[in-house]
């Protein structure tokens, strides 16, 4: 076991864990969207899980730092909050939403993050960024909502883990990046019927299974 100090409190964890995982397992919350416990190489794309670690001159992402004996971690310093709030504002500048109409039961991960960081769901002082994409995209078994998607990549990862040939992919590049599906495949040949892993793991309700599929999946587990 390894002991480290987080916010002046000593916690214990196993070797090989990331600082983020160790904290979460010890009841210390650090905002995160793209973290998956079982993933070997962290995606490290959402940039929310910043912490300060003694010995580093600026905040680092806690998902990419492995625990070490005696590590001193702080999760709530002003530089950490500054970066987390900016990352959150940036995400919200591409994600127009209101808590009232959130399609995710109990509100999505973003609402919880906003509460934790004590910021609104608006991107102020940033402007909302227009994008040239459809509001809804048909991905055979799912409806994909680009404006809800924060590109955490969890769906792409779980799809690859569950199915030998991953059916979901990142497509395009940069600001235009979306989650895509491509291929002239007979829907009945797809494993999606019984899988639904991508929709389940999505933190923002950006992938919604079509109702007829959900019915089938439920009746045919």
């Amino acid at each position: 076991m390894i002991k480290l100090i987080v916010d002046e409190k000593e916690i214990e964890t196993e070797e090989g864990r990331s600082v983020l995982q160790a904290c979460l397992e010890n009841g210390i919350f650090i905002p995160n969207l793209c973290f998956i416990k079982t993933r070997q190489q962290p995606h490290a794309s959402c940039r929310l899980c910043f912490v300060e670690i003694e010995g580093f001159d600026r905040p680092v992402t806690s998902c990419t730092e492995k625990v070490r004996e005696g590590l001193v971690v702080r999760t709530d310093t002003p530089p950490v909050r500054r970066l987390q709030r900016m990352a959150f504002k940036l995400l919200m500048s591409g994600h127009p939403c209101e808590a009232k109409v959130c399609p995710v039961k109990g509100g999505c991960q973003l609402i919880r993050t906003a509460k934790y960081l004590k910021v609104g769901l608006n991107p102020k002082p940033l402007e909302f960024l227009e994008r040239e994409v459809e509001e809804e995209v048909d991905l055979t078994f799912f409806t994909y909502y680009p404006f809800r998607c924060v590109l955490c990549g969890k769906c792409v990862y779980v799809c690859r883990e569950k199915n030998e040939h991953n059916l979901l992919t990142f497509a395009q590049r940069g600001f235009d990046t979306v989650i895509g599906f491509f291929g002239d495949i007979d829907p009945t040949d797809l494993p999606c019927h019984t899988c639904l892993a991508c929709a389940t793991i999505c933190p923002t309700g950006a992938l919604i299974p079509k109702p007829e599929l959900t019915r089938e999946a439920k009746s045919n587990p």
């Binding site: 929310l48 990352a87 500048s93 960024l129 924060v150 590049r173 940069g174 600001f175 990046t177």
Partner: peptide
């Protein structure tokens, strides 16, 4: 902004804001 790979939040969204 055009060459950002789009993976991380700061580069994907942040450079677009700077450009705008």
């Amino acid at each position: 902004q055009k060459e950002s790979c789009g993976k991380c939040t700061f580069c994907r969204m942040g450079t677009k804001h700077l450009l705008n």
